[in-house]
Design a protein around this nucleic acid. Structure first.
Length: 632
DNA sequence: TTAGGGTTAG
Protein backbone atom coordinates (compact mmCIF):
# COMPACT_ATOMS: atom_id res chain seq x y z
CA UNK A 1 0.00 0.00 0.00
CA UNK A 2 2.74 2.42 1.05
CA UNK A 3 4.76 1.44 -2.00
CA UNK A 4 1.70 2.11 -4.15
CA UNK A 5 1.19 5.59 -2.66
CA UNK A 6 4.82 6.46 -3.16
CA UNK A 7 4.56 5.30 -6.71
CA UNK A 8 1.51 7.46 -7.35
CA UNK A 9 3.15 10.49 -5.77
CA UNK A 10 6.26 10.16 -7.86
CA UNK A 11 4.12 9.79 -10.98
CA UNK A 12 2.16 12.88 -10.00
CA UNK A 13 5.37 14.84 -9.43
CA UNK A 14 6.58 13.77 -12.81
CA UNK A 15 3.35 14.94 -14.47
CA UNK A 16 3.63 18.28 -12.71
CA UNK A 17 7.19 18.62 -13.95
CA UNK A 18 6.03 18.11 -17.51
CA UNK A 19 3.33 20.74 -17.02
CA UNK A 20 5.77 23.27 -15.60
CA UNK A 21 8.15 22.64 -18.48
CA UNK A 22 5.34 23.26 -20.95
CA UNK A 23 4.45 26.52 -19.21
CA UNK A 24 8.12 27.51 -19.43
CA UNK A 25 8.24 26.72 -23.14
CA UNK A 26 5.18 28.81 -23.92
CA UNK A 27 5.91 31.51 -21.33
CA UNK A 28 2.53 30.79 -19.77
CA UNK A 29 3.12 32.53 -16.46
CA UNK A 30 -0.52 32.65 -15.39
CA UNK A 31 -1.07 28.93 -15.86
CA UNK A 32 2.28 28.25 -14.21
CA UNK A 33 1.32 30.32 -11.17
CA UNK A 34 -2.00 28.49 -10.83
CA UNK A 35 -0.25 25.12 -11.06
CA UNK A 36 2.24 26.24 -8.44
CA UNK A 37 -0.56 27.35 -6.13
CA UNK A 38 -2.36 24.07 -6.59
CA UNK A 39 0.71 22.02 -5.75
CA UNK A 40 1.77 23.89 -2.62
CA UNK A 41 -0.78 22.12 -0.40
CA UNK A 42 -0.05 18.64 -1.76
CA UNK A 43 3.27 18.30 0.01
CA UNK A 44 4.88 17.23 -3.24
CA UNK A 45 7.39 20.08 -3.23
CA UNK A 46 9.95 19.01 -0.68
CA UNK A 47 13.60 19.80 -0.20
CA UNK A 48 14.41 16.37 -1.50
CA UNK A 49 12.36 16.69 -4.64
CA UNK A 50 15.08 18.52 -6.53
CA UNK A 51 13.66 18.04 -9.99
CA UNK A 52 10.16 19.28 -9.30
CA UNK A 53 11.46 22.26 -7.38
CA UNK A 54 13.83 23.12 -10.18
CA UNK A 55 11.06 22.83 -12.77
CA UNK A 56 9.07 25.45 -10.84
CA UNK A 57 12.08 27.73 -10.56
CA UNK A 58 12.79 27.27 -14.25
CA UNK A 59 9.19 28.03 -15.17
CA UNK A 60 9.35 31.42 -13.41
CA UNK A 61 12.77 32.11 -14.90
CA UNK A 62 11.66 31.25 -18.43
CA UNK A 63 8.57 33.43 -18.07
CA UNK A 64 10.85 36.30 -17.07
CA UNK A 65 9.40 36.57 -13.58
CA UNK A 66 12.54 37.50 -11.65
CA UNK A 67 10.65 38.20 -8.43
CA UNK A 68 8.90 34.83 -8.23
CA UNK A 69 12.02 32.95 -9.31
CA UNK A 70 13.95 34.64 -6.51
CA UNK A 71 11.19 33.81 -4.03
CA UNK A 72 11.25 30.11 -4.94
CA UNK A 73 15.06 30.14 -4.77
CA UNK A 74 15.09 31.80 -1.35
CA UNK A 75 12.68 29.25 0.05
CA UNK A 76 15.14 26.43 -0.63
CA UNK A 77 17.42 25.87 2.40
CA UNK A 78 21.04 26.72 1.53
CA UNK A 79 22.30 23.17 1.91
CA UNK A 80 19.67 21.94 -0.56
CA UNK A 81 20.34 24.56 -3.25
CA UNK A 82 22.27 22.81 -5.97
CA UNK A 83 24.24 23.94 -9.04
CA UNK A 84 21.15 23.90 -11.26
CA UNK A 85 19.14 26.10 -8.89
CA UNK A 86 21.90 28.70 -8.76
CA UNK A 87 22.47 28.56 -12.53
CA UNK A 88 18.77 28.87 -13.30
CA UNK A 89 18.40 32.00 -11.18
CA UNK A 90 21.59 33.52 -12.61
CA UNK A 91 20.23 32.99 -16.13
CA UNK A 92 16.94 34.55 -15.09
CA UNK A 93 18.73 37.69 -13.89
CA UNK A 94 20.88 37.88 -17.01
CA UNK A 95 17.92 37.49 -19.37
CA UNK A 96 15.70 39.78 -17.35
CA UNK A 97 17.99 42.78 -17.70
CA UNK A 98 19.82 42.42 -14.37
CA UNK A 99 23.16 40.94 -15.46
CA UNK A 100 25.04 42.45 -12.52
CA UNK A 101 22.72 40.67 -10.09
CA UNK A 102 23.47 37.46 -11.99
CA UNK A 103 27.20 37.98 -11.63
CA UNK A 104 26.86 38.82 -7.94
CA UNK A 105 24.96 35.59 -7.51
CA UNK A 106 27.90 33.77 -9.11
CA UNK A 107 30.29 35.31 -6.56
CA UNK A 108 27.92 34.24 -3.80
CA UNK A 109 27.69 30.77 -5.31
CA UNK A 110 31.47 30.40 -5.31
CA UNK A 111 31.65 31.52 -1.69
CA UNK A 112 28.98 28.98 -0.78
CA UNK A 113 31.17 26.19 -2.15
CA UNK A 114 28.57 25.00 -4.62
CA UNK A 115 29.92 22.97 -7.50
CA UNK A 116 30.41 25.11 -10.60
CA UNK A 117 30.03 23.40 -13.95
CA UNK A 118 30.17 24.38 -17.60
CA UNK A 119 26.52 25.45 -17.66
CA UNK A 120 27.23 27.90 -14.85
CA UNK A 121 30.13 29.33 -16.86
CA UNK A 122 27.89 29.72 -19.92
CA UNK A 123 25.52 31.87 -17.86
CA UNK A 124 28.42 33.87 -16.41
CA UNK A 125 29.45 34.83 -19.95
CA UNK A 126 25.88 35.55 -20.96
CA UNK A 127 25.63 38.00 -18.05
CA UNK A 128 29.08 39.48 -18.81
CA UNK A 129 28.11 40.01 -22.44
CA UNK A 130 24.94 41.78 -21.33
CA UNK A 131 27.02 44.08 -19.14
CA UNK A 132 28.56 45.22 -22.41
CA UNK A 133 32.04 45.87 -21.04
CA UNK A 134 34.90 43.46 -21.34
CA UNK A 135 36.08 43.85 -17.74
CA UNK A 136 33.60 41.32 -16.31
CA UNK A 137 34.05 38.89 -19.19
CA UNK A 138 37.83 38.92 -18.94
CA UNK A 139 37.58 38.13 -15.23
CA UNK A 140 35.17 35.32 -15.98
CA UNK A 141 37.51 34.02 -18.66
CA UNK A 142 40.34 33.88 -16.12
CA UNK A 143 38.05 32.08 -13.73
CA UNK A 144 37.07 29.59 -16.41
CA UNK A 145 40.73 28.77 -17.18
CA UNK A 146 41.58 28.44 -13.49
CA UNK A 147 38.69 26.11 -12.88
CA UNK A 148 39.72 23.87 -15.74
CA UNK A 149 36.92 24.59 -18.24
CA UNK A 150 39.26 25.55 -21.09
CA UNK A 151 38.42 22.39 -22.94
CA UNK A 152 34.65 22.69 -22.46
CA UNK A 153 33.12 23.43 -25.85
CA UNK A 154 30.05 25.02 -24.26
CA UNK A 155 32.10 27.34 -22.06
CA UNK A 156 34.40 28.23 -24.97
CA UNK A 157 31.40 29.03 -27.19
CA UNK A 158 29.93 31.28 -24.54
CA UNK A 159 33.22 33.07 -23.86
CA UNK A 160 33.71 33.60 -27.60
CA UNK A 161 30.21 35.01 -27.89
CA UNK A 162 30.91 37.35 -24.97
CA UNK A 163 34.05 38.66 -26.72
CA UNK A 164 32.07 39.15 -29.96
CA UNK A 165 29.49 41.20 -28.10
CA UNK A 166 32.22 43.27 -26.45
CA UNK A 167 33.80 43.92 -29.86
CA UNK A 168 36.93 41.85 -29.22
CA UNK A 169 36.82 39.66 -32.31
CA UNK A 170 40.58 38.95 -32.16
CA UNK A 171 40.18 37.25 -28.80
CA UNK A 172 37.29 35.23 -30.23
CA UNK A 173 39.41 34.12 -33.16
CA UNK A 174 42.30 33.15 -30.89
CA UNK A 175 40.11 30.97 -28.67
CA UNK A 176 38.51 29.44 -31.75
CA UNK A 177 41.87 28.51 -33.28
CA UNK A 178 43.06 27.01 -30.01
CA UNK A 179 39.94 24.88 -29.50
CA UNK A 180 40.63 21.18 -29.97
CA UNK A 181 37.11 20.13 -30.79
CA UNK A 182 34.57 22.61 -32.18
CA UNK A 183 30.82 22.35 -32.47
CA UNK A 184 28.52 23.94 -35.02
CA UNK A 185 27.74 26.56 -32.39
CA UNK A 186 31.46 27.46 -32.15
CA UNK A 187 31.55 28.06 -35.90
CA UNK A 188 28.33 30.05 -35.86
CA UNK A 189 29.43 32.26 -32.98
CA UNK A 190 32.57 33.19 -34.93
CA UNK A 191 30.55 33.64 -38.12
CA UNK A 192 28.25 36.10 -36.35
CA UNK A 193 31.27 37.93 -34.98
CA UNK A 194 32.95 38.18 -38.38
CA UNK A 195 29.73 39.48 -39.97
CA UNK A 196 29.50 42.14 -37.29
CA UNK A 197 33.11 43.26 -37.05
CA UNK A 198 34.87 42.21 -40.24
CA UNK A 199 32.16 42.46 -42.88
CA UNK A 200 30.17 40.03 -44.96
CA UNK A 201 32.99 39.25 -47.44
CA UNK A 202 35.17 37.76 -44.69
CA UNK A 203 32.12 36.08 -43.21
CA UNK A 204 31.43 34.38 -46.53
CA UNK A 205 35.00 32.99 -46.59
CA UNK A 206 34.40 31.46 -43.15
CA UNK A 207 30.91 30.27 -44.11
CA UNK A 208 32.38 28.39 -47.08
CA UNK A 209 34.89 26.69 -44.78
CA UNK A 210 32.31 25.42 -42.29
CA UNK A 211 32.37 21.63 -41.96
CA UNK A 212 28.61 21.61 -41.45
CA UNK A 213 25.87 24.23 -41.42
CA UNK A 214 22.57 24.39 -39.65
CA UNK A 215 19.72 26.81 -40.18
CA UNK A 216 21.28 29.29 -37.76
CA UNK A 217 24.47 29.55 -39.82
CA UNK A 218 22.48 29.95 -43.04
CA UNK A 219 20.33 32.63 -41.44
CA UNK A 220 23.32 34.60 -40.18
CA UNK A 221 24.88 34.64 -43.64
CA UNK A 222 21.68 35.46 -45.52
CA UNK A 223 20.77 38.23 -43.06
CA UNK A 224 24.27 39.68 -43.56
CA UNK A 225 23.63 39.90 -47.29
CA UNK A 226 20.24 41.49 -46.75
CA UNK A 227 21.64 44.03 -44.30
CA UNK A 228 24.28 45.02 -46.83
CA UNK A 229 21.77 45.43 -49.64
CA UNK A 230 22.96 42.40 -51.63
CA UNK A 231 19.56 41.12 -52.68
CA UNK A 232 20.75 38.83 -55.47
CA UNK A 233 23.25 37.10 -53.21
CA UNK A 234 20.65 36.78 -50.44
CA UNK A 235 18.19 35.10 -52.83
CA UNK A 236 21.00 32.87 -54.16
CA UNK A 237 21.84 31.61 -50.68
CA UNK A 238 18.17 31.23 -49.75
CA UNK A 239 17.71 29.01 -52.79
CA UNK A 240 20.75 26.92 -51.84
CA UNK A 241 19.57 26.63 -48.25
CA UNK A 242 16.01 25.60 -49.07
CA UNK A 243 16.25 23.67 -52.32
CA UNK A 244 19.75 22.19 -52.27
CA UNK A 245 20.45 21.68 -48.59
CA UNK A 246 16.85 20.85 -47.71
CA UNK A 247 16.35 23.23 -44.80
CA UNK A 248 13.09 24.96 -44.06
CA UNK A 249 12.51 28.37 -42.54
CA UNK A 250 11.06 28.23 -39.07
CA UNK A 251 9.50 31.13 -37.24
CA UNK A 252 12.77 32.25 -35.67
CA UNK A 253 14.52 32.23 -39.05
CA UNK A 254 11.64 34.07 -40.70
CA UNK A 255 11.72 36.73 -38.02
CA UNK A 256 15.51 37.16 -38.28
CA UNK A 257 15.35 37.61 -42.04
CA UNK A 258 12.45 40.05 -41.73
CA UNK A 259 14.34 42.11 -39.17
CA UNK A 260 17.29 42.33 -41.57
CA UNK A 261 14.87 43.47 -44.31
CA UNK A 262 13.37 46.08 -41.99
CA UNK A 263 16.77 47.44 -41.05
CA UNK A 264 18.02 47.76 -44.62
CA UNK A 265 14.67 48.67 -46.15
CA UNK A 266 14.70 45.64 -48.44
CA UNK A 267 11.03 45.16 -49.20
CA UNK A 268 11.75 42.78 -52.09
CA UNK A 269 13.20 40.05 -49.88
CA UNK A 270 10.69 40.98 -47.19
CA UNK A 271 7.76 40.30 -49.54
CA UNK A 272 9.31 37.02 -50.62
CA UNK A 273 9.58 35.94 -46.98
CA UNK A 274 5.94 36.94 -46.47
CA UNK A 275 4.81 34.78 -49.39
CA UNK A 276 6.96 31.88 -48.12
CA UNK A 277 5.39 32.17 -44.68
CA UNK A 278 1.88 32.17 -46.17
CA UNK A 279 2.60 29.10 -48.30
CA UNK A 280 4.50 27.07 -45.73
CA UNK A 281 2.35 27.63 -42.72
CA UNK A 282 -0.91 25.78 -42.97
CA UNK A 283 -2.97 27.42 -40.29
CA UNK A 284 -2.09 30.97 -39.51
CA UNK A 285 1.14 32.92 -39.46
CA UNK A 286 2.77 32.86 -36.05
CA UNK A 287 2.06 35.98 -34.02
CA UNK A 288 5.79 36.72 -33.74
CA UNK A 289 6.33 36.42 -37.50
CA UNK A 290 3.26 38.55 -38.24
CA UNK A 291 4.55 41.21 -35.87
CA UNK A 292 7.96 41.27 -37.56
CA UNK A 293 6.10 41.50 -40.90
CA UNK A 294 4.29 44.62 -39.66
CA UNK A 295 7.60 46.03 -38.50
CA UNK A 296 9.27 45.18 -41.82
CA UNK A 297 6.57 46.77 -43.99
CA UNK A 298 6.42 49.82 -41.74
CA UNK A 299 10.20 50.35 -41.75
CA UNK A 300 10.22 49.93 -45.54
CA UNK A 301 7.67 52.72 -45.82
CA UNK A 302 4.81 50.41 -46.86
CA UNK A 303 2.51 51.39 -44.03
CA UNK A 304 -0.61 50.22 -45.90
CA UNK A 305 0.84 46.72 -46.28
CA UNK A 306 1.76 46.76 -42.59
CA UNK A 307 -1.81 47.69 -41.73
CA UNK A 308 -3.23 44.92 -43.95
CA UNK A 309 -1.14 42.31 -42.06
CA UNK A 310 -2.28 43.84 -38.77
CA UNK A 311 -5.96 43.74 -39.71
CA UNK A 312 -6.09 40.07 -40.69
CA UNK A 313 -4.35 38.84 -37.54
CA UNK A 314 -6.75 36.75 -35.47
CA UNK A 315 -4.83 37.49 -32.27
CA UNK A 316 -2.56 40.36 -31.38
CA UNK A 317 -0.37 40.89 -28.37
CA UNK A 318 1.05 44.09 -26.94
CA UNK A 319 4.15 43.77 -29.16
CA UNK A 320 1.95 43.56 -32.27
CA UNK A 321 0.09 46.71 -31.28
CA UNK A 322 3.33 48.48 -30.46
CA UNK A 323 4.80 47.60 -33.87
CA UNK A 324 1.72 49.03 -35.60
CA UNK A 325 1.63 52.18 -33.47
CA UNK A 326 5.39 52.79 -33.87
CA UNK A 327 5.08 52.33 -37.62
CA UNK A 328 2.27 54.87 -37.83
CA UNK A 329 4.20 57.21 -35.52
CA UNK A 330 7.18 57.14 -37.90
CA UNK A 331 4.83 58.18 -40.67
CA UNK A 332 3.57 61.09 -38.59
CA UNK A 333 0.05 59.68 -38.45
CA UNK A 334 -0.58 60.92 -34.94
CA UNK A 335 -4.39 61.00 -35.12
CA UNK A 336 -4.49 57.41 -36.29
CA UNK A 337 -2.16 56.34 -33.47
CA UNK A 338 -4.41 57.94 -30.86
CA UNK A 339 -7.47 56.42 -32.47
CA UNK A 340 -5.92 52.93 -32.54
CA UNK A 341 -4.76 53.31 -28.94
CA UNK A 342 -8.40 53.59 -27.94
CA UNK A 343 -9.04 50.22 -29.57
CA UNK A 344 -5.85 48.73 -28.18
CA UNK A 345 -6.70 49.26 -24.52
CA UNK A 346 -9.87 47.23 -25.00
CA UNK A 347 -7.77 44.29 -26.20
CA UNK A 348 -4.42 44.37 -24.36
CA UNK A 349 -2.68 46.26 -21.59
CA UNK A 350 -0.34 48.93 -23.00
CA UNK A 351 3.28 48.92 -21.82
CA UNK A 352 6.14 51.41 -21.76
CA UNK A 353 6.92 50.88 -25.47
CA UNK A 354 3.31 51.77 -26.32
CA UNK A 355 3.75 55.17 -24.74
CA UNK A 356 7.06 55.76 -26.45
CA UNK A 357 5.19 55.23 -29.73
CA UNK A 358 2.34 57.51 -28.66
CA UNK A 359 4.61 60.31 -27.45
CA UNK A 360 6.77 60.12 -30.56
CA UNK A 361 3.63 60.14 -32.73
CA UNK A 362 2.43 63.27 -30.93
CA UNK A 363 5.85 64.78 -31.38
CA UNK A 364 6.00 64.03 -35.12
CA UNK A 365 2.48 65.32 -35.64
CA UNK A 366 2.65 68.36 -33.38
CA UNK A 367 -0.11 67.08 -31.09
CA UNK A 368 1.25 68.99 -28.12
CA UNK A 369 -1.76 68.92 -25.80
CA UNK A 370 -2.44 65.23 -26.30
CA UNK A 371 1.22 64.28 -25.85
CA UNK A 372 1.49 66.39 -22.74
CA UNK A 373 -1.64 64.80 -21.33
CA UNK A 374 -0.31 61.28 -21.91
CA UNK A 375 3.05 62.10 -20.36
CA UNK A 376 1.60 63.60 -17.20
CA UNK A 377 -0.85 60.72 -16.74
CA UNK A 378 1.66 57.92 -17.42
CA UNK A 379 2.13 56.98 -13.82
CA UNK A 380 -1.22 57.95 -12.34
CA UNK A 381 -3.45 56.41 -15.02
CA UNK A 382 -1.34 53.65 -16.53
CA UNK A 383 1.03 52.81 -13.68
CA UNK A 384 4.09 53.27 -15.87
CA UNK A 385 7.20 55.03 -14.60
CA UNK A 386 8.51 57.39 -17.28
CA UNK A 387 11.59 55.94 -18.96
CA UNK A 388 14.43 57.83 -20.59
CA UNK A 389 12.66 57.27 -23.96
CA UNK A 390 9.46 58.86 -22.66
CA UNK A 391 11.41 61.83 -21.39
CA UNK A 392 13.22 62.32 -24.66
CA UNK A 393 9.93 62.15 -26.62
CA UNK A 394 8.14 64.65 -24.43
CA UNK A 395 11.12 67.01 -24.36
CA UNK A 396 11.20 66.78 -28.14
CA UNK A 397 7.46 67.40 -28.38
CA UNK A 398 7.49 70.46 -26.12
CA UNK A 399 10.80 71.77 -27.44
CA UNK A 400 9.75 71.69 -31.07
CA UNK A 401 6.55 73.50 -30.22
CA UNK A 402 8.56 76.20 -28.46
CA UNK A 403 7.74 75.30 -24.85
CA UNK A 404 11.41 75.37 -23.93
CA UNK A 405 10.93 76.28 -20.28
CA UNK A 406 8.46 73.47 -19.66
CA UNK A 407 10.76 71.02 -21.40
CA UNK A 408 13.67 72.17 -19.29
CA UNK A 409 11.71 71.92 -16.07
CA UNK A 410 10.75 68.34 -16.98
CA UNK A 411 14.43 67.55 -17.48
CA UNK A 412 15.39 69.13 -14.17
CA UNK A 413 12.73 67.10 -12.40
CA UNK A 414 13.73 63.75 -13.91
CA UNK A 415 14.04 60.87 -11.47
CA UNK A 416 16.76 59.34 -13.64
CA UNK A 417 19.77 61.30 -14.88
CA UNK A 418 19.14 62.80 -18.35
CA UNK A 419 21.23 61.36 -21.16
CA UNK A 420 22.63 62.69 -24.39
CA UNK A 421 19.39 62.12 -26.30
CA UNK A 422 17.25 64.09 -23.87
CA UNK A 423 19.63 67.04 -23.56
CA UNK A 424 20.47 66.91 -27.28
CA UNK A 425 16.80 67.03 -28.18
CA UNK A 426 16.21 70.21 -26.18
CA UNK A 427 19.40 71.63 -27.64
CA UNK A 428 18.02 71.10 -31.15
CA UNK A 429 14.89 73.00 -30.14
CA UNK A 430 16.99 75.81 -28.71
CA UNK A 431 18.60 76.13 -32.12
CA UNK A 432 15.27 76.23 -33.91
CA UNK A 433 13.78 78.74 -31.51
CA UNK A 434 17.06 80.63 -31.22
CA UNK A 435 17.35 80.46 -27.45
CA UNK A 436 21.06 81.02 -27.20
CA UNK A 437 21.20 81.23 -23.43
CA UNK A 438 19.62 77.86 -22.68
CA UNK A 439 21.40 76.29 -25.65
CA UNK A 440 24.76 77.41 -24.39
CA UNK A 441 24.00 76.05 -20.95
CA UNK A 442 22.95 72.66 -22.37
CA UNK A 443 25.99 72.42 -24.61
CA UNK A 444 28.25 73.06 -21.68
CA UNK A 445 26.55 70.21 -19.83
CA UNK A 446 26.90 67.96 -22.85
CA UNK A 447 30.54 68.86 -23.44
CA UNK A 448 31.21 68.02 -19.81
CA UNK A 449 29.36 64.70 -20.09
CA UNK A 450 30.97 63.74 -23.40
CA UNK A 451 34.27 65.63 -23.68
CA UNK A 452 35.42 63.57 -26.67
CA UNK A 453 32.25 64.03 -28.70
CA UNK A 454 33.00 67.00 -30.94
CA UNK A 455 29.42 67.10 -32.23
CA UNK A 456 28.49 69.49 -29.43
CA UNK A 457 31.39 71.79 -30.12
CA UNK A 458 30.17 71.99 -33.72
CA UNK A 459 26.65 72.85 -32.58
CA UNK A 460 27.94 75.51 -30.23
CA UNK A 461 29.98 77.09 -32.97
CA UNK A 462 26.99 77.03 -35.34
CA UNK A 463 24.83 78.60 -32.71
CA UNK A 464 27.28 81.45 -32.12
CA UNK A 465 27.59 81.94 -35.82
CA UNK A 466 23.83 82.21 -36.27
CA UNK A 467 23.64 84.71 -33.44
CA UNK A 468 26.26 86.81 -35.22
CA UNK A 469 28.98 86.03 -32.66
CA UNK A 470 31.48 85.09 -35.30
CA UNK A 471 34.54 85.48 -33.12
CA UNK A 472 33.34 82.90 -30.68
CA UNK A 473 32.21 80.62 -33.51
CA UNK A 474 35.56 80.82 -35.25
CA UNK A 475 37.58 80.10 -32.17
CA UNK A 476 35.69 76.83 -31.64
CA UNK A 477 36.18 75.88 -35.31
CA UNK A 478 39.92 76.42 -35.01
CA UNK A 479 40.04 74.06 -32.05
CA UNK A 480 37.95 71.50 -33.94
CA UNK A 481 40.12 71.65 -37.05
CA UNK A 482 43.24 71.14 -34.97
CA UNK A 483 41.63 68.03 -33.48
CA UNK A 484 40.98 66.66 -36.94
CA UNK A 485 37.25 66.17 -36.49
CA UNK A 486 35.59 63.75 -38.83
CA UNK A 487 31.84 63.69 -38.94
CA UNK A 488 29.69 60.66 -39.76
CA UNK A 489 29.11 60.93 -43.51
CA UNK A 490 25.52 61.19 -44.72
CA UNK A 491 24.60 58.27 -46.93
CA UNK A 492 21.43 57.83 -48.95
CA UNK A 493 20.54 54.51 -50.48
CA UNK A 494 17.95 53.37 -52.96
CA UNK A 495 16.96 49.95 -54.31
CA UNK A 496 16.78 49.68 -58.06
CA UNK A 497 16.38 46.30 -59.71
CA UNK A 498 16.64 44.68 -56.31
CA UNK A 499 20.16 46.00 -55.83
CA UNK A 500 21.10 48.72 -53.40
CA UNK A 501 22.78 51.90 -54.67
CA UNK A 502 24.48 54.11 -52.10
CA UNK A 503 25.40 57.77 -52.44
CA UNK A 504 27.38 60.16 -50.30
CA UNK A 505 27.56 63.90 -50.86
CA UNK A 506 29.29 64.81 -54.11
CA UNK A 507 30.44 61.30 -54.85
CA UNK A 508 31.05 60.21 -58.43
CA UNK A 509 31.63 56.54 -57.75
CA UNK A 510 28.43 55.26 -59.30
CA UNK A 511 28.76 53.65 -62.71
CA UNK A 512 26.05 55.97 -64.07
CA UNK A 513 27.53 58.98 -62.35
CA UNK A 514 27.62 61.05 -65.53
CA UNK A 515 23.93 60.53 -66.24
CA UNK A 516 23.07 61.17 -62.60
CA UNK A 517 24.85 64.53 -62.61
CA UNK A 518 23.22 65.49 -65.93
CA UNK A 519 19.88 64.69 -64.35
CA UNK A 520 20.88 66.71 -61.30
CA UNK A 521 21.61 69.79 -63.45
CA UNK A 522 18.27 69.41 -65.16
CA UNK A 523 16.44 68.82 -61.91
CA UNK A 524 17.93 71.87 -60.19
CA UNK A 525 17.06 73.99 -63.23
CA UNK A 526 13.49 72.77 -63.28
CA UNK A 527 12.83 73.08 -59.56
CA UNK A 528 14.38 76.55 -59.52
CA UNK A 529 11.85 77.59 -62.11
CA UNK A 530 9.18 76.12 -59.89
CA UNK A 531 10.28 78.20 -56.93
CA UNK A 532 13.13 76.33 -55.23
CA UNK A 533 15.65 78.64 -53.58
CA UNK A 534 18.81 77.00 -52.20
CA UNK A 535 19.01 77.43 -48.45
CA UNK A 536 22.67 77.39 -47.58
CA UNK A 537 22.04 78.64 -44.06
CA UNK A 538 20.15 75.49 -43.16
CA UNK A 539 23.42 73.62 -43.03
CA UNK A 540 24.21 75.25 -39.77
CA UNK A 541 21.60 73.55 -37.64
CA UNK A 542 20.34 70.75 -39.75
CA UNK A 543 22.43 68.09 -38.05
CA UNK A 544 22.98 66.86 -41.60
CA UNK A 545 26.57 66.04 -42.32
CA UNK A 546 26.48 66.20 -46.06
CA UNK A 547 29.56 68.34 -46.33
CA UNK A 548 31.41 71.12 -44.59
CA UNK A 549 30.93 74.58 -45.94
CA UNK A 550 33.00 76.85 -43.80
CA UNK A 551 35.15 79.24 -45.78
CA UNK A 552 33.35 78.72 -49.09
CA UNK A 553 31.63 81.25 -51.33
CA UNK A 554 27.89 81.29 -52.01
CA UNK A 555 28.18 79.49 -55.35
CA UNK A 556 30.38 76.73 -53.96
CA UNK A 557 28.03 76.36 -51.03
CA UNK A 558 25.11 75.96 -53.44
CA UNK A 559 26.97 73.43 -55.55
CA UNK A 560 27.76 71.40 -52.45
CA UNK A 561 24.12 71.62 -51.38
CA UNK A 562 22.94 70.36 -54.80
CA UNK A 563 25.02 67.23 -54.55
CA UNK A 564 23.71 66.15 -51.13
CA UNK A 565 23.36 62.39 -50.99
CA UNK A 566 19.54 62.36 -51.07
CA UNK A 567 19.49 64.59 -54.16
CA UNK A 568 21.88 62.23 -55.96
CA UNK A 569 19.76 59.26 -54.91
CA UNK A 570 16.55 60.87 -56.14
CA UNK A 571 18.17 61.72 -59.49
CA UNK A 572 19.25 58.13 -59.86
CA UNK A 573 15.70 57.08 -58.96
CA UNK A 574 14.27 59.41 -61.59
CA UNK A 575 16.43 58.04 -64.40
CA UNK A 576 16.25 54.37 -63.47
CA UNK A 577 12.65 53.74 -62.47
CA UNK A 578 9.45 53.93 -64.47
CA UNK A 579 7.66 57.25 -64.71
CA UNK A 580 4.98 57.56 -62.06
CA UNK A 581 6.49 54.93 -59.76
CA UNK A 582 7.19 56.01 -56.18
CA UNK A 583 10.83 56.44 -55.21
CA UNK A 584 11.97 55.09 -51.84
CA UNK A 585 15.15 56.45 -50.29
CA UNK A 586 16.83 55.57 -46.99
CA UNK A 587 19.11 58.01 -45.23
CA UNK A 588 21.31 57.25 -42.22
CA UNK A 589 21.04 60.80 -40.80
CA UNK A 590 18.30 63.38 -40.68
CA UNK A 591 17.27 65.00 -43.94
CA UNK A 592 18.34 68.65 -44.11
CA UNK A 593 16.02 71.60 -44.55
CA UNK A 594 17.19 72.33 -48.07
CA UNK A 595 16.75 68.78 -49.34
CA UNK A 596 13.34 68.75 -47.68
CA UNK A 597 12.23 71.86 -49.58
CA UNK A 598 13.79 70.56 -52.79
CA UNK A 599 12.04 67.16 -52.55
CA UNK A 600 8.64 68.80 -52.19
CA UNK A 601 9.12 70.61 -55.49
CA UNK A 602 10.67 67.56 -57.18
CA UNK A 603 7.60 65.51 -56.28
CA UNK A 604 5.42 68.10 -58.00
CA UNK A 605 7.59 68.85 -61.03
CA UNK A 606 8.18 65.18 -61.86
CA UNK A 607 4.83 63.97 -60.56
CA UNK A 608 6.48 61.35 -58.38
CA UNK A 609 5.81 60.22 -54.85
CA UNK A 610 9.12 60.32 -52.97
CA UNK A 611 9.40 58.49 -49.67
CA UNK A 612 12.46 59.15 -47.53
CA UNK A 613 13.18 57.29 -44.32
CA UNK A 614 15.66 59.34 -42.33
CA UNK A 615 17.10 58.59 -38.92
CA UNK A 616 13.96 59.76 -37.17
CA UNK A 617 10.92 59.17 -39.35
CA UNK A 618 9.39 58.96 -42.81
CA UNK A 619 8.84 61.89 -45.14
CA UNK A 620 6.35 61.23 -47.92
CA UNK A 621 6.57 63.92 -50.60
CA UNK A 622 3.63 64.16 -52.95
CA UNK A 623 2.40 66.90 -55.29
CA UNK A 624 4.54 69.54 -53.66
CA UNK A 625 4.00 68.82 -49.98
CA UNK A 626 5.35 66.46 -47.35
CA UNK A 627 3.43 64.18 -45.01
CA UNK A 628 5.22 65.82 -42.08
CA UNK A 629 3.64 69.20 -42.95
CA UNK A 630 7.11 70.61 -42.30
CA UNK A 631 6.77 69.70 -38.64
CA UNK A 632 9.77 67.52 -37.76
C1' DT B 1 16.39 0.90 -11.03
C1' DT B 2 18.79 5.03 -13.15
C1' DA B 3 19.08 9.38 -15.03
C1' DG B 4 17.02 13.39 -15.52
C1' DG B 5 17.53 19.67 -14.72
C1' DG B 6 20.07 24.64 -15.88
C1' DT B 7 23.23 26.94 -21.25
C1' DT B 8 25.53 29.30 -25.77
C1' DA B 9 24.87 30.92 -32.12
C1' DG B 10 19.65 33.79 -35.50
Amino acid sequence: MIWQTECTLSLLARHYRTLFRTCARYSALDVGKKLHASIVTTGLVTCQNTFLRNAILHMYAACGSVLYARKVFDEIPLSYKDTVDWTTLMGCYAHGGFPLDGLNLFVHMKKSDVLIDEYTMVVVFLASAKMGCEQFGVQGHGCMVKMGFSSSIKACNAVMDMYVKCGLIDKTRRIFSEMGEKSIVSWTVVLGGVVKWEGFENARLLFDKMPERNEVAWTVMIAAYIENGLTKEAFGLLREMLFESGFELNFVTLSSLLSACAQSGNVLVGKWVHVYALKMIEHEIDIVVATTLINMYAKCGRIDDAFRVFLVMPRRNVITWNAMLSGLAMQGKGDMVLDLFGQMIREVKPDDVTFTAILSACSHSGLVDQGRHFFYSLESTYGIKPSIEHYSCVVDLLGRAGYLEEAESIIRGMTIPPNEVVLGSLLGSCSVHKNLELGECLIKELVQMYPDNTKYHVLLSNMYSLAGKNDKANSIRVVLRSRGVRKVPGISSIYVGGQIHCFSAGDKLHLQSQEIYMMLDEMIRKIRLAGYAPDTACQKFSGSNDGDYYGYGQEEKEQALFSHSEKLAVCFGLISTQAGMPIYIFKNLRICQDCHSAMKIVSKVYNREIVIRDRNRFHRFKLGSCSCFDYW
